[in-house]
Design a protein around this nucleic acid. Structure first.
Lengths: 261, 261
DNA sequence: GCCCATTTGTGCGTATGTATG
DNA sequence: GCATACATACGCACAAATGGG
């Protein structure tokens, strides 16, 4: 007889009931919530497929598809013949704004603290125009100064299509300070950001940015361009990051590449 | 009656017959080969699930799993009620050495041409030691100068565990010039590189690297550190790239993030 | 070394839902 | 309305790895 494992996670972390959301996605979401909420500690053994199919309204195939997705996320490790376990170093699910700097020991990331310095519609065209479908001034730009661990500051320019995501226009600025835009997209627009394209080079920073982040004019630093998309071909935002010279390394990806052998 | 679609791709692009390779992976590999080989043009309609299950030794579930993997790769687009199509801008499958620089128009990538300048065992420890499991001098280092589109050169330091991948030691250097190490890992060791962690910062280049890539001493440029893993927690190589100042943007990722909402 | 229960991995067949044209 | 085609879901069978006795 196998050891009894906790199976009431569905009560504590109920699966979302979004209309049209498939079962495997609901189960996956519930498991993610439970793991992030500490229901199972890192390294803990998860219920077996049998237990999950028995104690939940999900069939074996559905359970397996949800678990496979968690493995691809790096949240769960499965060992044939042994069991499924919470990954010991679960990857950060929400890497807000794609801005993570390594700590000195290389293991963690420095805390970031953003605040909005500008919000406006833009009519000029730029690298954002094509991916976001600019027509006239339907582009919303949000600039932020992002303090990184009391060491330095990064300047961020953020662009979305105002026709699609106009509700951002009417939020108070303070609310945008700490907003995880990915979370907003998922919660309010049901758009999961799944693809990220990032280009990096060195560049001379413009005067306004230098002033905003307290570096001297004409500073040369890292220039990062980000296009985030929902699904394979639906860009939802474009972002530019100006990172002054620092010893800290910017972590640009910890992502899956090709899938399933 | 539906239009007859070409179904002899399995003869022209036979699925690999690796022992223990699951069917869905073989079908996926065959489809990838056929698409990359031009059997179906971008935008072309692929055979339906029915046709595939009927004309191949694969069941519906297997076909669907292979197709879903292709969608996650961005190689195929599926539309319910319509069909499956080759993506019009299929992502580059093999981004050798993670070194791709945008062309001026931002659409393509500059050609790269590497050649080996050094191959040796190393005993000193470094950032590669922990992920690769260094014990004594069991680390193999391969340095290369990589010319990028006749414009500039990048210096690359590459590290693997010699105990695991010792066969690299005995290959002629010329053969390593153009080697796609990912392909070697897949073909000879059955190890698909699926995870890539990349950190970037600015750094002063050491004298030997400056000389090798024809830039002046003490040059400040991009410093990129890469850890590539097979599966969630099996690092297979560590790489450092020294990129001198250039207008060209380095493309650091076009990868999936979270999966299957 | 072997056997055996457990657990995940793969594969097949079927049924049903839903979007497309 | 209708046939087509992808999407989800279920149930079953067997293979393969694990871990303990």
């Amino acid at each position: 007889m196998s050891e009894q494992r906790r199976l009431d996670f569905l009560e504590r972390y109920p699966p979302p009931e979004k209309r049209g959301m498939p079962k495997y996605a609901r189960l996956r979401a519930a498991l993610v919530s439970a793991i992030e909420g500490g229901y199972w500690a890192p390294g803990a053994k998860l219920p077996t497929e049998q237990e999950l199919t028995g104690a939940t309204p999900y069939s074996l195939g559905t359970v397996q598809r949800a678990m496979r997705a968690l493995v691809e996320d790096g949240i769960v490790v499965r060992r044939q013949g042994s069991g499924s376990y919470v990954a010991t170093a679960p990857r950060q699910i929400d890497n807000p704004w794609h801005l993570r700097f390594r700590t000195a020991d290389g293991r963690g990331f420095l805390p970031v603290s953003p605040h909005v310095v500008l919000r406006e519609r833009v009519e000029v065209r730029g690298p954002w125009s094509e991916p976001l479908g600019q027509e006239g001034d339907n582009i919303l730009r949000v600039d932020r100064r992002i303090d990184v661990g009391d060491e330095f500051a990064v300047y961020s320019r953020f662009f979305v299509n105002a026709d699609r995501f106009g509700s951002l226009l009417y939020r108070p600025l303070a609310e945008l300070d700490d907003a995880n835009f990915k979370q907003i997209l998922l919660d309010e627009f049901d758009l999961p950001v799944t693809h990220v394209s990032q280009d990096v080079r060195m560049a001379i920073f413009p005067a306004d940015a230098c002033e905003a982040i307290d570096v001297e004019d004409e500073t040369v630093g890292l220039f990062l361009q980000v296009v985030a998309s929902a699904g394979a071909g639906d860009p939802v935002y474009y972002q530019e990051l100006l990172i002054p010279p620092t010893e800290r390394a910017l972590h640009v990806s910890d992502l899956r590449e090709a899938s399933e052998t």
